[in-house]
């Protein structure tokens, strides 16, 4: 019995330790943010790596999610004779929830895992130590540009996902199932508010998600054990922890934003 308590104590202690280390790491990043603005080409390079290279998966997923919403929404709404509301349904679900959340989950899987693996391998192959010995702070040179890029790319990716999703819903609803195009757009416009929905849903949520996913991915890479096993575990932890964090944060944000 005492063994059990000791184990629980130990594991919660290690959770708190990681959390504390992660917070410290975040503060160090925030302190070093200025470096990213001094070296914009480094940030540009990382926007290419995390943003542009995630674009294809985001666009394809967005189109399919929107099309499925169009089909399912139509089938449900047609029973009540209100299939004109399809536009509102597709746009509301994408803008408030699915757009930012699914983008963040895909971002964690595509860009987050790559960030962790890259930094973990740089650590394992002594590249980070070599930078330190060359008098270059790896936290600034390597971590900060990636952090800024993640924070910048996420809202753009979420906006692209949402917009393409709405077009996918339009294609299914109007193109294939014959919903009136005018009603599709006008009912959508009646229900969606620029500040309450688009700003809060897509922009603010996705910035928050980008912050959390990039932070977790960079921390896991930086704190990984410098072995191949350590890097693979860190990559898994990034995807799992970042996805859980996104879903939990989404619940909190939704509660705060939409009553």
């Amino acid at each position: 019995m005492t063994e059990l308590f000791a184990r629980i104590g130990r594991s919660s202690l290690s959770i708190f330790e990681r959390l504390g280390n992660g917070t410290l790491f975040l503060f160090q990043i925030l302190m070093g943010l200025g470096f990213g603005f001094k070296r914009p080409t480094l940030v540009l390079l990382q926007i290419w790596a995390v943003g542009v290279r995630s674009l294809s998966i985001i666009m394809v997923s967005g189109a399919f999610v929107g099309m499925v919403l169009g089909l399912q929404g139509y089938n449900t709404l047609v029973t009540y004779g209100s299939e004109e509301s399809l536009g509102a349904l597709v746009a509301l679900s994408l803008i408030r929830e699915l757009g930012p959340v699914l983008t963040a989950l895909l971002f964690a899987g595509r860009a987050g895992s790559a960030l962790t693996a890259e930094i973990g391998l740089m650590k394992a192959t002594e590249q980070l130590a070599a930078l330190e010995m060359m008098g270059v702070d790896p936290l600034q040179r390597i971590v900060v540009p990636r952090f800024i890029a993640g924070l910048f790319a996420m809202p753009l990716l979420a906006a692209i996902f949402t917009a393409i999703g709405i077009l996918g819903g339009y294609f299914c609803g109007v193109g294939l199932l014959g919903v009136d195009a005018g009603a599709f757009w006008s009912l959508m416009q009646q229900h969606i508010d620029l500040i309450d929905d688009v700003m809060q849903g897509v922009v603010i949520k996705s910035i928050a998600f980008g912050f959390v996913v990039t932070w977790i991915a960079l921390y896991e890479g930086y704190a990984s054990l410098p072995t191949s096993e350590g890097v693979s575990q860190a990559t898994t932890r990034t995807v799992v922890n970042a996805s859980l964090a996104v879903l939990a944060l989404d619940f909190v944000l939704t509660g705060l934003m939409f009553h």
Binding site: T125, E126, Q127, A129, A130, M133, G135, V136, D137
Partner: peptide, 22 residues
Amino acid sequence: VTELYSMRKRIGMLFQSGALLT
């Protein structure tokens, strides 16, 4: 930290693996 980094600029180090930036 700043003094440490400027001290390191005067030291070169050859790592066992080379540690080149890949």
